[in-house]
Each structure stands twice: as structure tokens, then as C-alpha cells.
């Protein structure tokens, strides 16, 4: 469903700022891929580039999603085609309620596909169900989006969006090494409950801890903008034990 070939990306308007230096990655339907790597390896950049963040510029390579090249598409067009990015630090948006935000997101997706918008009543029902399923505090979703949410609450809110929007490819940017166990568990529960033969995941993470709760099909090690090794779930355990030293040395860095 997703094929990345020789992807190079830099920060817009900054010379010699190449972060991704030739990424190759293929994700099949229903697979869960973990992307691990040391700080500054480009993990978070990869997640953001895939979703079309305007701060990055793709200088070479291709990304094909369901047979269509998506590099020319804006973020919202990628979302309409079934891509989703769970943010490491979701933005706070005062005065916008999660309910209203998600309804608008669903509506614009329906509109882009020429489908009918969900009625307010049907959406309310769906929303309430998902709020319960995700275990987010119902009074919280009546407040402003992410404003004053704790770290765990923000994660639950991201998972709520994942549940409501039902993307076919979810990219989870969990690069933060400071995630507490609670937050890890919330993310893992979200992924596990959404796992299906029709849906794929790319989980970006620094530590193996998250993978105690999610068993990936494929693990990639990303160092200095390149995938240097690909393996099964055991690869994550290996990294946990030995760290990234060996890979960094191979990539010519001072680790």
C-alpha cells in the first residue's frame, strides 16, 4: 500500500539541511512497521514528510500510496486518502472543541470523496462510543482541543481521532524518549485495537519500550537519514540491549 523509494528531504529554505538521505521502505496492507533510531536520525522528519508537512522539501525520490504518487498532495489531501499522523506534541487550539474538530475533519473527507456528510445525530452517537472506548474523560472533550490536557490525555485524544477517522495508514510519531508508561500503554492499546488486515501502521519510536506493548511485523533501524537495517521483532530487543552505537559507527558518526 505504501512504497517509499530513495526519499531525500531537507528543511525548506535552508541549504545543506538534508535530513532524509535515501529512504526505501515498503509497507503492505495490515502490517505494523516500527522505525527506530537514535536522536536526530530523521525518524520524526520521516513521519512528518509522509504526511506532507510544509516545513520540509522533498528533493528526490518517490512516495506511492495505493498506486498514486502523493508527494504533490497537500496534507489534507493525504488525509482524505486515508493517511493519519498521530502527533508527538499535538497542538493546542483554544475554543475549538474536539467534537467540532472531528466532525469537520470527517465532513471534509466525505466531501472530497463525493460522499454524504454524516448527520449530526449519527456523528454524536459515534463520537460518544469512541470516547468511551478510548477511555478519554468525557468532560475533557467538551473543552478546547488539547488545551490544558495532560500528556496522557493528549495521547488518548490522538487515539480518539484515530478511532473516529479510521485511516488505512496510521503513522505514529512517538519519538519522545520521555513518554511515560501510561502514555505508552494508551498508544499501544489504540494500535492494537485498530489493527486489522486492511490497516497498516508505521510506529516511530526511540526506545524499544513501546514495542513491549505492540508487536511489530517489521523493525527498521534509521540512522543519519538512512535505513541501515531491517528485521523482525527481535531486532528491537537487540537494539534495547546494545544501543545504536554500532550503527552510528558504521554511519561514520561520533557516537
Amino acid at each position: 500500500m505504501l512504497e517509499i523509494n530513495n526519499l531525500h528531504a531537507s528543511v525548506v529554505d535552508i541549504e545543506n539541511s538534508e535530513i532524509l538521505k535515501g529512504i526505501n521502505l515498503k509497507v503492505n496492507k495490515g502490517e505494523v512497521h516500527a522505525i527506530m533510531g537514535p536522536n536526530g536520525s530523521g525518524k520524526s522528519t520521516l513521519a512528518n514528510v509522509l504526511m506532507g508537512r510544509p516545513d520540509y522539501e522533498v528533493t528526490a525520490g518517490s512516495v506511492v500510496f495505493y498506486g498514486e504518487s502523493i508527494l504533490g498532495l497537500r496534507a489534507e489531501e493525504r488525509a482524505h486518502r486515508g493517511m493519519f499522523l498521530a502527533f508527538q506534541y499535538p497542538a493546542e487550539i483554544p475554543g475549538v472543541r474536539p467534537w467540532q474538530f472531528l466532525k469537520a475533519a470527517l465532513d471534509s473527507k466525505a466531501e472530497s470523496r463525493g460522499e454524504d456528510k454524516m448527520s449530526v445525530r449519527a456523528f454524536s452517537k459515534l463520537f460518544d462510543e469512541k470516547v468511551e472506548a478510548v477511555g478519554i474523560n468525557p468532560t475533557l472533550v467538551k473543552r478546547s482541543l488539547n488545551e490544558g490536557f495532560s500528556g496522557g490525555e493528549k495521547k488518548r485524544n490522538e487515539m480518539l481521532q484515530l478511532e473516529v477517522l479510521q485511516p488505512s495508514l496510521a503513522i505514529l510519531d512517538e519519538t519522545d524518549s520521555g513518554l511515560d508508561v501510561d502514555a505508552l500503554r494508551i498508544v499501544a492499546e489504540g494500535v492494537n485495537s485498530m489493527r486489522s488486515p486492511e490497516r497498516s501502521f508505521i510506529v516511530v519510536t526511540h526506545y524499544q519500550r513501546l514495542l513491549n506493548y505492540i508487536t511489530p511485523d517489521v523493525v527498521h533501524i534509521l540512522v543519519k537519514g538512512k535505513i541501515v537495517r531491517t528485521g523482525g521483532p527481535d531486532l528491537a530487543l537487540e537494539v534495547e540491549k546494545d544501543g545504536y552505537k554500532e550503527y552510528l559507527a558504521a554511519a561514520g558518526a561520533n557516537a
Binding site: R53, P54, A75, E76, F84, L85, A91, F101, A104, A105
Partner: peptide, 8 residues
């Protein structure tokens, strides 16, 4: 970007 990544 947060809102656009959700389809707006």
C-alpha cells in the same frame, strides 16, 4: 498543520 493533517 495539525488541522490539515486531519483533512481540513
Amino acid at each position: 498543520f495539525y488541522l490539515m493533517a486531519r483533512g481540513l
